[in-house]
Design a protein around this nucleic acid. Sequence first.
DNA 1: GGAATAACCATACGAGCATATGGCTTCCTC
DNA 2: GAGGAAGCCATATGCTCGTATGGTTATTCC
Lengths: 201, 201
Amino acid sequence: MAAATHKLIAHAGLDAATMAAVAREAGFSVGLVQHYFASKDELLLFAYKQMTEHQLTRVARKVAEGEAARQPIRAILLDCMPELWPLDEARRGEYRVAKAFHARALDVPTVAEVARETATVVRGQIARAVENGKECGEVEVQTDAERAALELSALIAGLADELYSEPVGGQGARALIKAAEAILEDRLGSYFPGECHHHDR
Amino acid sequence: MAAATHKLIAHAGLDAATMAAVAREAGFSVGLVQHYFASKDELLLFAYKQMTEHQLTRVARKVAEGEAARQPIRAILLDCMPELWPLDEARRGEYRVAKAFHARALDVPTVAEVARETATVVRGQIARAVENGKECGEVEVQTDAERAALELSALIAGLADELYSEPVGGQGARALIKAAEAILEDRLGSYFPGECHHHDR
DNA sequence: GGAATAACCATACGAGCATATGGCTTCCTC
DNA sequence: GAGGAAGCCATATGCTCGTATGGTTATTCC
């Protein structure tokens, strides 16, 4: 049911996600949707929460993989961040849903709460990565981790917007993606200039 | 009339900007609004266009002032960019309106066109500033101006999001603004490391 | 000065929506 | 096997919205 909601919003915006449309898309009746969700707001909020959870889970898995492979933190971050970019149709859909809810967050406090929370989590994880980088020698010790996390998370979000405007698959899109990746790499390089000095045991 | 629309959207979101509400807010009848705008879409698009025009005009004035005062390009950019940040109630309102339309742009091509165009203008102006910086010695000649503009515009947009989440006026807000300004200053510093070598005549 | 054009209004209409209501079935559980 | 909860549905209700309609009052221009 949340999947149907996601699909509708991704395809035609929040306004298209009516109770009737969700029910039809999910193959149920309107009444059943009401049976599980007391109101439309509840349904939307649930769908939104679930999507952000999925995103964060994917990122967490990538982090775990990177750590298992003993990759430097810089490389792990470089691998994770484009997970939030609209690089294929699935992630373009997520981007659209996220944007729709960001607008809704301006007026609906419960949505704003979720948006704020996920943003805080992302920034916190980046900040922790920078702190870890200090310990293992990738990051200079005087670096302000919070400030770095602020810049990096802002940059990711901003680049996502720029990337979305170019339709996927074209040559212009490929060039843009290259540019965005290069920017991210550069910026990560400026915050993580060193080599990890930990040795495999 | 566009002002009334702006006010409503800024205060309560796109959904609150109904024909009746706009008419009431502007002190006219619904019929008169219809007389000037063939459809609601037309009204919304006009209001959006006008707002972006206002923003770009303000920026252009700041640029002109900075050039008249022979300020270095880096300083002019540092002065202009926060113009798009939600630093006071007026600009918070503009931010909300812009966000609402960005979401709408996902589904309405005419809105997407305007959003895309203004984004292109902003990026183009930054790129031109970088090119100018090369000529006067502030920027290293091998710098990729398009890439720099991409990063800077993404950074501004991303930082705007981060800034908005903190309510204005608090101490947390002031700290965040400081941090955002510091980041922007740093980044401008990395793209504009030199001094202008032009002399006053 | 008269006709056409523009400014301006109240109200009607019809569609779409969220939600409420009252039901029917299935499946546990005591 | 009675009964009650949970799964499931069709339809009614009432509201809000964009737009259509048919006007009246100014203004302008020949």
